[in-house]
Each structure stands twice: as C-alpha cells, then as structure tokens.
C-alpha cells in the first residue's frame, strides 16, 4: 500500500507542477544553429562537381550542368538542381562534401504538404529557401 501512496503523492505534486509542453504551431521552435533542415542552394557558387549527387545515400539529388553563356569562361554552370524530399533523409552529407558551400543547410524544417509533387523541389525553390541558413560550416 505504501508504494501506491507514494505514486499518488508524486502525481498530486506534478498535477500542480510546471508544464513542459511547447505551443508549437503558435510559437515556432527555435532550432540550434547546427540543425539540419531543408537545404538552401546557391547556383552562383556551384561548380557542377557532382559530389553531392554522388555522396547522397538515397540518390535524391539530380543535377545537370551546361556550358557557360560567356564562352571565355571554363568549366560548367549549373542548369537544373532538384532534390526529391520524398526520399531525402537530411543526413547532411551533401553539404559536407560541397567544396564551395553552394549547398548549405537551413533551420527550416516544415515540409508537410498535401501532395507528393510538392516535395520535389527545384533549383529556384531551393535558392529562395534562404532564411535561417546555418552559420557554422564545415
């Protein structure tokens, strides 16, 4: 009986105690700087080295390059850059290998949508996802 009474006294204490819940949709959760959210992509910096697409464990990155408009310049510039968030696991490896920090993580994590099509993000969308970009880089 003593054990039962002890438990009851604990629950009576927590009944009036501090609550720990967050008012989530009303007050956004502030994630720490390192948080791995949806990527931000900067086409200017990209050198089309394909490392991100190769390291991706789920093969969710698709990119194509093209010849630069200015024939003087060497190398390639990015043409399309798509991440399929149906299979992206936000493992952070793409940003880790990127030599120019063209692809970086942000703290944004809201991905829920009514249609699967909306999870397929293209270069324009990823470029415009430029808030809360992670400060600490590799």
């Amino acid at each position: 009986m003593l054990g039962l009474a002890k438990g009851l006294s604990y629950t009576l204490k927590t009944l009036v105690g501090k609550k720990v819940t967050l008012k989530y949709p009303d007050e956004p959760i502030i994630m720490p700087d390192r948080f791995r959210g949806i990527q931000h992509f900067d086409p200017e910096k990209c050198i089309v080295c394909n490392q991100c697409a190769r390291i991706c464990p789920t093969q969710c990155i698709d990119l194509t390059g093209k010849k630069p408009d200015d024939p003087e310049k060497k190398g390639k510039v990015i043409n399309t850059y798509d991440i399929n968030f149906e299979i992206c696991i936000l493992c952070d490896l793409c940003t880790e290998v990127c030599p120019t920090e063209a692809i970086v993580m942000t703290n944004n994590f809201e991905l829920a949508s009514f249609s699967r099509d909306e999870l397929f993000k293209d270069m324009k969308w990823l470029h415009e996802n430029n808030t809360n970009v992670r400060k600490e880089q590799h």
Partner: peptide, 14 residues
C-alpha cells in the same frame, strides 16, 4: 528518485 517513487514500489506493478 521520482521515477522510483512513481513506479518502482508500486504493488500492482510488482
């Protein structure tokens, strides 16, 4: 300690 208070001694649980 409060984990034990809530559960460990509870006769029904035992």
């Amino acid at each position: 300690a409060s984990y034990h208070q809530l559960v460990t001694g509870n006769e029904i649980f035992l």
